[in-house]
Design a protein around this nucleic acid. Structure first.
Length: 335
RNA sequence: GCCGGGAUGCCCGAGCGGCCAAAGGGAGCAGACUGUAAAUCUGCCGGCUGACGCCUACGGAGGUUCGAAUCCUUCUCCCGGCA
């Protein structure tokens, strides 16, 4: 996730090394700073941020959840997080801006509802998301850019099924599953995923938005998910936490003071190849910027390896073994 | 030597008769984080205890007072000024 056309603490070369296949950027943040026209003038997002691989932009739907603007049928009215000024975002605007930004995949503007929420509200916003999806579709003009619709409906299987089938009927080339990882339990999420996937075409990508913890990713893949994005690997890195095959590590903990092992013996990232837990713990405690960079490099590699491993396992028909193996190593306890 | 200022919990620092185990930082120890308002936020943080509570504490000693980190005397050390 590179919300502001930058994955925090690393550069595009680090992303290539980590094995990143796609980068996400954000419509809301980029329209306010530096502005989509400014980026368009510089040849679009790819050239601007020097990333040759695929780019996806989120529409600003998540900010409708996290920044709680006022919403009406026309669109959302925000206060800019940068200068407090009033800004509006409609489905048409979200598309226009994303066409200027120039990602390979744009997302329809949806309304993401935090959970738990009254069914009435979840249903109303799911319906609104559906209406907005149509508007996004008709506003979309760039043939070289894919536009994904977004399934909402909270954790209610019926609402999910309706949202998925109606969104699918609009003919999008790919589908985001939104409104998850926003307060629901794992079991509720699984129900929502199953209900959504059942109504989506098998030959088009299914993108579970905002999901990124190890167990959550594998459970979603097991149910048919193809794509993900998540701030967790990079944010946890900045907060001193390292993800590993044998459980996650809070490197601030005194347990690592004299631990000379790498974060993860099985990891081939540069951080694990060069630095000990003891050193990294020191960097974290000393608030050295390199701690952010080194842990981000590792957490990205860990997460991307996990996903790549799942892909390999699926291709060789050994996915359930893979699932069991990952779960066993992680539960065997950390350290 | 004289005059003035000061010594507070691991560190810095507020308090200036009871509401003080003592504000606020920092450090330390844990926890949270999922389409990034996040290099952020939360909790604990003298000792014993699950808790009530008890004990020890505001440089040392002594005193005033029902009651002192807070007032007085004296000692020690630190800082500034004058000799």
């Amino acid at each position: 996730v590179g919300t502001r056309a930058a994955v925090k603490a690393v550069d595009t070369r680090d992303l290539v090394e980590a094995g990143a296949g796609i980068v996400l950027a954000n419509t809301y943040h980029l329209m306010l700073r530096p502005g989509s026209a400014m980026i368009a003038q510089r040849g679009g997002l790819h050239r601007f941020m020097a990333w040759d691989g695929p780019i996806l932009t989120d529409s600003g739907g998540f900010q409708i959840y996290s920044l709680s603007p006022t919403i009406d049928e026309e669109g959302a009215r925000f206060r800019s997080v940068y200068d407090g000024s009033k800004v509006g975002l409609t489905p048409e605007e979200a598309i226009r801006i994303q066409e200027e930004l120039g990602p390979d995949i744009a997302m329809a503007l949806d309304v993401c509802v935090g959970l738990p929420a009254p069914r009435q509200e979840v249903e109303a916003e799911m319906e609104r998301t559906l209406r907005w999806a149509e508007r996004c579709l008709s506003a979309h003009t760039r043939g070289d850019q894919a536009l994904f619709g977004i399934v909402q409906g909270g954790v209610d299987p019926d609402l999910r099924a309706k949202s998925a089938s109606q969104t699918a009927a609009l003919g999008f080339p790919g589908f985001g599953i939104g409104g998850l990882s926003v307060g629901e339990s794992a079991a509720e999420r699984h129900t929502a995923l199953e209900a959504s996937f059942a109504e989506l075409p098998d030959d088009k990508p299914r993108y579970v938005m905002g999901l990124g913890d190890t167990e959550g990713l594998l459970e979603a893949i097991a149910r048919g998910a193809d794509m993900f994005d998540c701030v967790l690997p990079t944010r946890l890195a900045r907060h001193g936490k390292a993800l590993t095959r044998s459980g996650d590590l809070n490197l601030r903990n005194s347990a690592f003071e004299t631990d000379d092992r790498p974060i993860d013996e099985g990891c081939s990232c540069r951080t694990c190849a060069t630095h000990s837990r003891a050193y990294l713990r020191h960097l974290v405690r000393a608030k050295e910027l390199s701690a952010h960079r080194l842990l981000t490099i590792h957490n990205l590699r860990y997460t991307l390896d996990l996903i790549a491993g799942a892909g390999d396992a699926i291709e060789t028909g050994r996915f359930s073994e893979y699932l069991a193996q990952v779960a066993e190593r992680r539960s065997d306890g950390s350290s």
